[in-house]
Structures are given as structure tokens and as C-alpha cells.
Nucleic acid binder design. Structure first.
Length: 538
RNA sequence: GGUCUGUUCGUCUAGGGGUUAGGACACCAGAUUUUCAUUCUGGUAACACGGGUUCGAUUCCCGUACAGACUACCA
């Protein structure tokens, strides 16, 4: 059992006092939170953040993190999605204590396997007169909306205002209803939402949200296929699984009053979890919810892992495969909507667990800035040990079928370390240390390749011919001496020298590069450049 | 359209009745460097608008605007 730290003490404000009191009470009970995605595709990065906030609260309070799969819509079920969710959470380091994949005292944790439970509670609501059967066809519902629309009604919902005009157990006689039920006529069960009542939702992030029940429609609780809708399933499960806090996306805020009503009707109001509706993740440019489309357009991942859509066979690149480190991603995600109130930005998972608090979650939607994610990645990558970085390089080299001594690998890392954002950058930016250039940066060649360069290079390659070992120091002193002897300013030829050896106009320290390459390789590359680029000089 | 939520530099945000409105990313400039990068230094840049309340409002209240979410037998 844990108590949240109150950072902002303000005894003069009674509101704050009440809020603090509430906060204390909130954490009196065992913290049990759930992440409840539906297996309709790859796990969206926003979902990962939701999972993370749940996880942080659970860990901070020595509570329990539950994974529940909300697969009540068989039409949208996507094979492999559940496994993908499990893998993704594991990769980012969110450990599940209870739920799909690990089991637990409230199993099963897959809603499709809990069907009878929902039916039972739906039945209870019907028996209590709080829900009813509805037999309206799709066409009838459509006609209803049309009618309401034409009548100039503000909202076209199935509810207290018009449920008596529809075909349901409220308007039909008991005999008719029984006949319909026994004759396999499709039906749904709807909640009988009372008219004109104030429904209060206490939200840990937004305060109290009050909605008039007349604005809430008679939501379908059980679908005609016998499956519950999200609304029923979620309330029943959260109650049965003793969930203490529901932390979910803001898109659920509008239906929260309905959920409150359900808790009340089921007689569970005292056990109702605390709600916290997270601000949305927005597109980087323009407005709107972050979508896969945006990610594709801007060229960044939106899913934690690679995902191949089973229908289209289209591959969406994952954060992992794009070179993002899980710790960096987590750190970045944690700061999308939350901040510790200090200037510290780098947080390990453990530090996040300690520093996290719901009260410091912001209210406004957050634009997704991939540049910041890259910065975090760079920070984390740099903090890796040389051995870890060598491992990344070895991986790439193996793929390319290139042999490399450990000594060379270490040197490569040492000159590349400060230049990389992703692990694959080591190979991409360092490939010239393993493969001689076949082409040369044209712009630099046009501008800097001249007779002076040719003279220096020719003399220099002869000078280092007999070196037993070429070090950064000897390379430098030799090059400097060569240039000086020829009366050529070193600064004017350096870039061309670099091009001759690496093919590029810029890169890591050239002297270290020569040391890594060794004099034989350097001479060979210079000779190749000299013959290839000779034409241009003349 | 209706309901709900939100609005501090380009972005993420701190702050909160009296501040030179702070930090980070990005950007720009200078220094360092054999180049690029790194590093260091500096810089540009924000309280959506209008009314209140108040000695004073970016901060509190009310409107407006704008934005977003929701408005399915999807979650």
C-alpha cells in the first residue's frame, strides 16, 4: 500500500485540501490497474503510453498490473494481434503481473471467454428493470435517426425521449416479448438510462465532469450475437477484477458517465474505480489524433515492433527495428503528457516509477515530436558501454559477412560514438572503415581536388610505405611534414585528402581513420583516388 | 449539429495574482575541430481573444474563437 506524495501543499485552498484527502483515500486500497487493448491490429504507440502510465502507478504502489484482452468484437479480430501486444509490452519492459499470457485469480482475462458472466449481469439489470430487450432492426434505427433529424432534434439517440416509440420490451407486451425471444429473433439489451439526472464523473486529471443523463443514450449492453459491448464488459470486469484505477485515453471520457451509471445500477458504486482520462497523442503537424497515416507520411514508426498487416501484407516498421532503444522510447513516452516538475529529463524505468504521479499528468493533447524521441535515443545510446556498442557493430558486420578484430571494432566505436543516433548508424556511418570507396563526393572533388593535393598525396603515400604501424600521431605528423616540405597549406588540402581515403567530404577524425585502416589500405585507397580522379585535374 | 474536453515559445512543458515568464528539443550565430558531428557560449521565440474581479491578471470568473474527442449491435 502506498501513499502518493503531495508536491503542492496549499492549505488555504479548500479545494486542494479536498483533493488531497481524496488522493489519500484513493491510495488506501490496493492498487490494481489494467491495460485493456483490443486485438484489432498492431498496438499503437499511444496504447503503449497508456500501458506505461498504468504500469508506473502499479509499481509505485506495489500494486498489480493486469493485461486484459477486449475481444468482444469478433468482426474486428485480427490474428496475431494479441501475440503482438504481448511481445511489444515485453520489449518496452512493461511486465504483466496478471492476465492474458500469465494467468491469475480472475482468469480468464480474454473477454470472449467470459461471455456467460456478462449475460448474467445483463440479465440482472433486466430483472431489476434497469435494462430492456430491443428488437429494432437496423432499418428501424436508421428511420428513427432520420425522423429525429427531420424533427430538428439536437441528438438522434435511442433514449428516454423516444424509447417508447421503438420495438422493445418496454413497448411490447410480455407475451410478444417472450414469443420474439423464443423465436430466435435477434435482439440486443439496452441500458434504461434515466432522464434528466446529473451524472458526475470524478476524474483524477480533469476534476469533476458533470453530464445530464438525457444526453446519454440507451447504450447497447449485449449485442445480438450474444457478446457484450465494451461498456458492459469493461464495467463488469473492472469490478470483478477489483480494479482500483482506470487509466485510459481521453476518447473514453464521453462514455464515462454511462459507466458510472452502470456501476450504480449494478450496485457497485462504492467499489467503482478511480478514473483518469489521458490527453490524446496528436499528429506532429496540423491537428487530430495521431494515426498510422501521419507516421507513414513523416517517415517514423508508430508501432513498437514491425507489423505486417495480415490482410494487405503491408509491413509497418516498428520502433525496435528502426533502432529505438526501449528505455529511450519509454522515457520519451513518459514525457508525452507527464513531467516530473523538475528539469531532469533522463529517467530510467525505475526512476519513472518513483517520480510518477497522476496529478502531474497534463490535460491538453500532445503533439508527437519524433525529433525529441531521436534525441532521447541518442542520449541512451551514448550512455552505452563500448562493449555494448561493439555488439551492435558486430551484428551489422555479420550481416555483411565482414570479419573484424575486437581491437579494430573498439577503435571504430571510439571515433563513431559521438556521432550516432541509432545503433545502425555505427555501420552506416562507419562502413567506409571496412569497404574502400568506389565513388567520391563530387562537390568536394570539384572544389578541392587540385595539383597540390595530388603532390601531397603522392609524397605522403610514399612516406608511410615502410611504416611498421601507422598511428593517428604519425599519420598527422607525416602529413603535416609532407605539406610543409612542399610549401602547401595543410588546411587547403585536408578535405581532398579525406575524400581520397573515405570518399566523403566529412566524417570522423581522419588521422584515427588512417590508424584504423593501416598504411597498406591507406596507400591503396590513395592510389585508387589518384588514378580515378587524375582526369579531373588535367 | 449536440455533448464533453482542452488552449504558455515551432514542439514538449515549468510556473502561477506583482517573475527579466524558466527548462528541454528544434532552429540560428559564435568558439573549438582537419571536415561534419560532438562539446561550450550566446540568440530568436510563448501566456488565443474579449469582458469582468482586483491596486494589479498570463494566473481567478464569464463569454468568444479555435482545436480535439465522442456522437455504432467498434473498442
Amino acid at each position: 500500500m502506498g501513499f502518493i506524495h503531495c508536491r503542492r501543499l496549499k492549505s488555504k485552498s479548500s479545494f486542494t485540501f479536498t483533493a488531497q484527502l481524496t488522493r489519500t483515500i484513493i491510495f488506501m486500497r490496493e492498487v490494481r490497474v489494467r491495460f485493456a487493448p483490443s486485438p484489432t491490429g498492431a498496438l499503437h504507440i499511444g496504447g503503449v503510453r497508456t500501458a506505461l502510465y498504468n504500469y508506473l502507478l502499479a509499481r509505485q504502489n506495489k500494486g498489480t498490473m493486469i493485461l486484459r484482452i477486449e475481444d468482444t468484437d469478433q468482426g474486428r479480430y485480427v490474428p496475431g494481434a494479441e501475440e503482438y501486444i504481448l511481445k511489444s509490452l515485453a520489449w518496452v519492459g512493461i511486465k504483466i503481473d496478471e492476465g492474458v499470457g500469465v494467468g491469475g485469480p480472475h482468469a480468464p482475462y480474454r473477454q470472449s471467454e467470459r461471455k456467460p458472466l456478462y449475460q448474467e449481469y445483463a440479465q440482472k439489470l433486466i430483472n431489476d428493470g434497469l435494462a430492456y430487450y430491443a428488437f429494432d432492426t437496423e432499418q428501424e434505427l436508421e428511420a428513427m435517426r432520420e425522423r429525429l433529424k427531420n424533427a430538428g432534434s439536437d441528438n438522434q439517440q435511442y433514449g428516454s425521449a423516444n424509447r417508447h416509440e421503438m420495438r422493445n420490451s418496454l413497448t411490447l407486451s410480455k407475451e410478444e416479448v417472450d414469443t420474439l425471444l423464443s423465436s430466435q429473433t435477434p435482439y440486443v439489451i439496452r441500458l434504461k438510462v434515466p432522464a434528466n439526472e446529473e451524472v458526475k464523473v470524478k476524474d483524477l486529471i480533469r476534476g469533476e465532469v458533470i453530464v445530464n443523463s438525457s444526453e446519454v443514450d440507451d447504450k447497447v449492453l449485449m449485442k445480438s450475437d450474444g457478446m457484450p459491448t465494451y461498456h458492459l464488459a469493461n464495467v463488469v470486469d473492472d469490478y470483478l477484477m477489483k480494479i482500483s484505477h482506470v487509466i485510459r485515453g481521453e476518447e473514453w471520457l464521453p462514455s464515462a458517465p454511462l459507466h458510472v451509471l452502470l456501476y450504480r445500477f449494478l450496485g457497485w458504486e462504492k467499489e467503482m474505480p478511480h478514473f483518469a482520462h489521458l490527453p490524446l497523442l496528436l499528429k506532429p503537424s496540423g491537428n487530430g489524433k495521431l494515426s498510422k497515416r501521419d507516421a507513414d507520411q513523416m517517415g517514423f514508426p508508430i508501432f513498437p515492433l514491425d507489423w505486417t498487416d495480415p490482410k494487405t501484407n503491408e509491413l509497418a516498421k516498428g520502433f525496435k527495428e528502426s533502432g529505438y532503444l526501449p528505455d529511450a522510447l519509454i522515457n520519451f513516452l513518459a514525457f508525452l503528457g507527464w513531467n516530473p516538475g523538475t528539469t531532469q529529463e533522463l529517467f530510467s524505468m525505475q526512476q519513472l516509477i518513483e517520480a510518477f504521479s497522476i496529478e502531474r499528468i497534463g490535460k491538453a493533447g500532445t503533439k508527437f515530436d519524433i525529433l525529441k524521441a531521436q534525441w532521447f535515443n541518442q542520449q541512451y545510446l551514448r550512455s552505452k558501454t563500448d562493449d555494448e556498442l561493439v555488439a551492435y557493430l558486430s551484428e551489422s558486420l555479420q550481416k555483411e559477412g565482414i570479419e573484424c578484430t575486437e581491437e579494430k571494432a573498439k577503435k571504430v566505436i571510439s571515433i563513431l560514438k559521438e556521432r550516432i543516433t541509432f545503433p545502425q548508424d555505427i555501420w552506416e556511418q562507419g562502413r567506409f572503415l571496412f569497404q574502400a570507396p568506389t565513388t567520391f563526393d563530387e562537390q568536394v572533388v570539384n572544389k578541392k581536388w587540385n595539383d597540390d593535393v595530388v603532390k601531397v598525396l603522392t609524397t605522403f603515400s610514399t612516406a608511410i610505405q615502410d611504416f611498421s604501424s601507422l598511428t593517428a600521431e604519425t599519420a598527422k605528423s607525416t602529413l603535416e611534414k609532407t605539406a610543409a616540405d612542399l610549401g602547401i597549406k595543410i588546411g587547403s588540402i585536408m578535405q581532398a585528402v579525406r575524400v581520397s581515403i573515405t570518399g566523403a567530404g566529412s566524417g570522423p577524425d581522419l588521422m584515427m581513420t588512417m590508424e584504423i585502416l593501416g598504411n597498406k589500405e591507406v596507400i591503396s585507397r590513395i592510389n585508387y583516388a589518384l588514378t580515378t580522379l587524375k582526369v579531373k585535374v588535367a
